[in-house]
Design a protein around this nucleic acid. Structure first.
Lengths: 228, 228
DNA sequence: TGTACATCAGTGAACGCGCGTTCACTGATGTAC
DNA sequence: TGTACATCAGTGAACGCGCGTTCACTGATGTAC
């Protein structure tokens, strides 16, 4: 029976797709994720990131405080990792929208509905991004700003390629418009996250509110003239 | 010689402001203000409100920690006082704008410039309002939301009375538009507060960016049709 | 293949420190007569 | 008016507690031969 009792040791790619985590690196990544999730969970209880403590997070993650340092130099570094994760979540939103396509009619209402569900599905990430975008430490704030700018540029590219805006607009104008759309949708995320659960009436009003704001923006876009 | 040698005793931080304060009530108000200012000042150093400590604030205010309780039950109550102060600052902005009037041509650029200076003049208040609007504790966040809603409604009233929008719009539509304007300007405040000093080039670009966004919104407003 | 050694994620005790809150107090200001 | 007493903003000592960080450690995993 060669190799039958040898399930540890040098775990190579052959074993990588087996169910349980084997290598040290994989375990480490998993623990790191646990720490990030713990931080998000605590923020989900109404706390801001800057008010979280290192011990609090490791406790929530089921680790001893000193383990923290195996993964992050300090809280700032953990925060930046959360920003990166949040940035990925934002990109995925665009990617999903690109793939799924949208109903040609009422594309705006469709998008807002999809967005609402997406924000709920990733509510801890949005809570972090939206909450720290203006109120976090300067470092975190700058990192979030960078992610949001990238997101805005990608959206501009998508809109251009999909010909979602009727007339030709300069890149600068398109970016300005997307900036307004993005800040409006981040504002919407704040409202979505504060929406009490099961209030379909309130939820519907919220959707309609942002549908109108976006419609107004696109209405303005059709009239836009380059700098007069 | 009544009152000649009688000016010392418990010389407090509150008295440091020149001696014309007489009544106990006035002194108390002054100390309260000192506490609020201390909290704002600490936030001005890049901290979020939720991360501030009671001792930290009293220390900054030149008081002993226990004095805090003469003015606020806890940090949340101090935060709500700051929201109220910030709300007053927002109203004053509208009131000033109403009184001053605006150049009939280029009313938007004029407004954005006035706004930029106003935000700088009251930068600590805006730092608090904008920073805690999304990221603060639920209590503070709700309070800020209320203030911002009032502000939006007042703005809608002003715009209606001053006939700033050409066509007739329903109250609901006007409020929706003002909501978009306000959230855009709060977003702008975040950028203004992060603007490095003395960078007139960046400052000018920022102003032009928001001028374009507002112009887009007003352009959309002229086309707005009630729910189709 | 088996063995001997290196690595390093996670542990647990210990530290000094600042925190929020309590309590009894002081003494100037306010009030009743 | 002056006097005697009440009020209460601000003080200072004390408390128990959780914090971030250090250090030496353990033992499973990884590697060299």
């Amino acid at each position: 029976m060669p190799g039958s009792d040898k399930k540890r040791g040098s775990a190579t790619a052959a074993q990588a797709h087996e169910g349980t985590l084997v290598t040290r690196g994989e375990r480490k990544q998993r623990t790191r994720s646990t720490l990030l999730d713990a931080a998000l969970k605590l923020m989900g209880e109404g706390r801001s990131f800057t008010s979280l403590g290192l011990r609090e997070i490791t406790r929530e993650a089921g680790l001893v405080p000193t383990s923290f340092y195996r993964h992050f130099r300090d809280m700032d570094e953990l925060g930046l990792a959360l920003v990166e994760e949040g940035g990925l979540t934002l990109r995925r939103l665009l990617r999903d929208a690109r793939k799924a396509g949208m109903p040609v009619e009422d594309i705006i209402r469709g998008s807002v509905r999809v967005y609402l569900h997406y924000v709920r599905e990733h509510h801890l990430q949005f809570l972090f991004i939206v909450g720290e975008r203006m109120g976090g430490s300067p470092t975190i704030r700058r990192a979030i700003r960078t992610e949001v700018t990238h997101f805005t540029n990608e959206m501009a590219q998508d809109i251009q390629q999909l010909r979602l805006l009727p007339r030709e607009l300069s890149t600068a104008a398109l970016q300005m418009i997307c900036g307004l759309v993005v800040s409006t949708m981040l504002n919407a995320a704040g409202d979505i996250l504060d929406l009490p659960p099961k209030q379909t009436q309130l939820e519907h009003e919220l959707v309609e509110h942002y549908v109108r704001q976006l419609r107004l923006i696109f209405l303005g876009s059709t009239l836009w003239k380059e700098s007069p």
